[in-house]
């Protein structure tokens, strides 16, 4: 298969990339790993006249711990680089585990975290766990930069708050008080399948009591969804399987799934119940974030 003609720019910095995007307007798009954009160009879903490469920029390639701030992950880091990062394995193993569940090894070597978020696919694997850890996003444009909670970046399927000249440059997982977290993906195969349901949970435990919790659902609403009523149920209560089952029932009422080729809405709802319960159990019992 062949792609239509386009121009390709290799800027030397994020600043230059944003200026190019600003200069050429909607006919230009940024490309990092290319695993989404190239396929969409083949399918003629997208037809950019200009591609601005950002995947090669060293400033987007870092994973570092900044004391007092948290773990900073550059948007150009690939899923396999997340999975293999010593810093993340030590501090947020659940983020490494989520990255490992995305697509297959070849795609994980190309696809970037920034791309996984910017594409805003409802079934994406990285948003739920990152939102469950209160991750913030740095967005840089040609004129301004801003920082937002990741939760507020998504507007709908394939839609974000990013303006045309803006790029996500980094994610910050802040030093938090969570004692456990996990992301469970339910797909129809072990590899290379999109999530039918994805559930991330994070908990802050005080002995057996849940002080705080996050439950974030993927693939069951137009955007990754916090199950806030279920979260509220948990706060201040003694952890138990019965409580987690109840939280699952509430979460399944909060989601807004669709029926598609992978599963019916009804089945997705029931899997939200099951996987919310399992995610909470795992987050509490395994005791790592």
């Amino acid at each position: 298969m062949y792609l239509p003609d386009f121009e390709y720019f290799t800027p030397d910095s994020v600043e230059e990339a944003c200026q190019l995007l600003s200069k050429y307007g909607p006919k230009a798009m940024a490309i990092a790993g290319g695993t989404d954009i190239v396929v969409k160009m083949k399918k003629e879903v997208l037809a950019p006249e200009i591609l601005v490469s950002i995947g090669h920029l060293p400033e987007l390639k870092k994973i570092e711990y900044v004391p007092g701030k948290g773990v900073v992950i550059g948007a150009g880091v690939t899923h396999n680089e997340v999975q293999n990062s010593k810093i993340l394995q030590e501090k947020y193993l659940s983020v490494c585990e989520a990255a490992h569940q995305m697509a297959n090894n070849q795609v994980r070597n190309l696809g970037t975290i920034g791309g996984n978020i910017s594409n805003a696919v409802p079934s994406a694997d990285m948003p739920p766990i990152l939102i469950a850890l209160d991750t913030t996003v740095k967005i840089v444009g040609s004129k301004k930069e801003r920082t937002l909670p990741l939760e507020d970046v998504f507007k709908g399927p394939n839609q974000t708050v990013l303006e045309h000249d803006e790029l996500i440059t980094e994610f910050v997982i802040p030093d938090g008080s969570f004692t456990g977290s996990t992301y469970l993906k339910f797909g129809l195969r072990a590899s290379g399948a999109l999530a039918v349901v994805g559930v991330a949970a994070s908990v802050q435990m005080d002995g057996g009591v849940i002080k705080d919790a996050r439950i974030v659902l993927g693939a069951v609403s137009p955007v990754p969804l916090r199950a806030k009523e279920a979260e509220n149920l948990l706060k201040g209560k003694q952890a138990s399987e019965e409580l987690f089952e109840e939280a699952g029932v509430i979460a399944s009422g909060e989601c807004r799934p669709i029926s598609d080729i992978r599963a019916s809405a009804e089945y997705r709802r029931d899997m939200v119940r099951v996987f919310t319960r399992r995610a909470l159990l795992k987050a509490v019992n395994e005791g790592h974030v």
Partner: peptide, 8 residues
Amino acid sequence: PVNSCMVL
């Protein structure tokens, strides 16, 4: 390993 069909 990467999929060369998606690499420019």
